[in-house]
């Protein structure tokens, strides 16, 4: 699905810079300043968004390291309880870090790669595939598209293009059914 934050932010910043900011009343200093801050904050977000996940993972890794070092601390009951708490938290954090192995950019690239390869196969099969295999291919692609477009429509339902928005299953529910 191509509606991704970096793309969305880019278009919002351009609209603010090219159209909205020049139209803000120069005499309204607060509005001028706030509008510029909106652009600044969105630009910062656009710049840092691709690094956000890596940043969090790096931070977790460093806190795990710190927790390991701090396990050498010795003390009374209060300290021991805190050490036990920290140790449990570090174990949970280590598990999270292990599961957070791939970068979001890698995830996106993998999806793009598979989309492209499926598309190529459809083109190839329609060029020289065995005719008997085409109905199965069509059934599979249509079934996959049904699930995919349901998610895409739900994701973008707030844009207001649905004739009957109530018929759309919320994206939260669709994703939690996985």
């Amino acid at each position: 699905m191509d509606m991704r934050p970096a793309f969305q932010l880019q278009t919002v910043i351009k609209a603010m810079t090219d159209v909205v900011l020049p139209a803000v009343d120069p005499a309204n200093k607060l509005a001028q300043e706030q509008a510029q801050l909106v652009v600044g904050m969105l630009s910062l977000l656009l710049q840092r968004l691709p690094l956000q996940y890596r940043y969090d993972r790096d931070e977790l890794q460093r806190y795990l390291q710190l927790a390991r070092e701090l396990s050498a601390v010795r003390g009374g009951a209060q300290t021991q309880a805190a050490l036990a708490d920290l140790s449990a938290g570090a174990a949970a954090g280590a598990g999270v870090l292990q599961r957070a192995a791939a970068d979001p950019a890698e995830l996106e690239a993998a999806v793009l790669e598979l989309r492209a390869k499926v598309g190529e196969l459809i083109g190839a099969a329609n060029a020289d595939g065995e005719p008997a295999s085409l109905p199965g291919l069509q059934r599979s692609v249509l079934a996959a598209a049904k699930v995919q477009t349901a998610r895409e429509r739900a994701w973008l339902a707030p844009t207001g293009f649905e004739a009957d928005p109530k018929s759309i299953t919320p994206i939260e529910r669709q994703l939690s059914s996985d």
Binding site: M3, F7, T11, D18, T159
Partner: peptide, 28 residues
């Protein structure tokens, strides 16, 4: 077009992508 910042209303183009996925489902 919007990715390349090529229009006078990239934001509108991005917003209108919502319609594209409705059409895609109609195609299906």
């Amino acid at each position: 077009a919007a990715r390349g910042a090529k229009t006078h209303q990239d934001l509108l183009l991005a917003w209108a992508m919502g319609l594209g996925y409705v059409l895609l489902d109609e195609l299906r």
